[in-house]
């Protein structure tokens, strides 16, 4: 059954890009402002939850299927570990910053080494985990 309230559906369509952008902002600006992979990933995942609450699980399945979410979930964690392991090439301990990511000027976006990359990996994993969690708790009955 589709949720037929026009207000909610229109506003969902209107807000979703902004929600996603805000989540991505939180993820990318981890080293500059409060937020980070986890909060940002949650916001992005909440966008998907909003989608499935408004338009039903079928719409969400079209945009973000279960298989994709499983793959992305493991992929995020693997990217994190691989980024950490790649420090071994330079003889550094696990999760050391790599020389190919210079520190940059503090306060600008391209600073803080590969922290932003790590947080993108975390954010991807968290977003898909939130979606999977909601699905497995039976979100489809809620809308």
């Amino acid at each position: 059954m589709k949720f037929r309230d026009t207000i909610v559906s229109i506003i969902t369509r209107f807000m979703l890009p902004f929600i996603t952008l805000f989540g991505l902002y939180l993820i990318v600006h981890v080293h500059l402002s409060p937020g980070g992979g986890f909060s940002g990933g949650t916001v992005v995942g909440a966008g998907f939850v909003l989608l499935s609450l408004t338009y039903g699980i079928s719409m969400q399945e079209r945009k973000f299927s279960h298989r994709t979410s499983t793959l992305i979930e493991s992929g995020g964690a693997l990217i994190y570990i691989i980024l950490g392991i790649s420090a071994f090439i330079y003889g550094q301990p696990f999760l050391s910053n790599l020389p190919i990511f210079p520190a940059g000027t503090p306060g600008r976006l391209f600073s803080g080494g590969f922290i932003a990359l790590l947080n993108i990996a975390i954010g991807v994993k968290v977003a898909s985990t939130i979606v999977a969690l909601f699905d497995s708790l039976g979100g489809e009955d809620l809308h």
Binding site: L71, E73, S74, G75, A77, L78, I81, G84
Partner: peptide, 13 residues
Amino acid sequence: VLVLLISAFISPV
């Protein structure tokens, strides 16, 4: 620890 974590995340894939 790392090998185990990697294989834990590879298995669902």
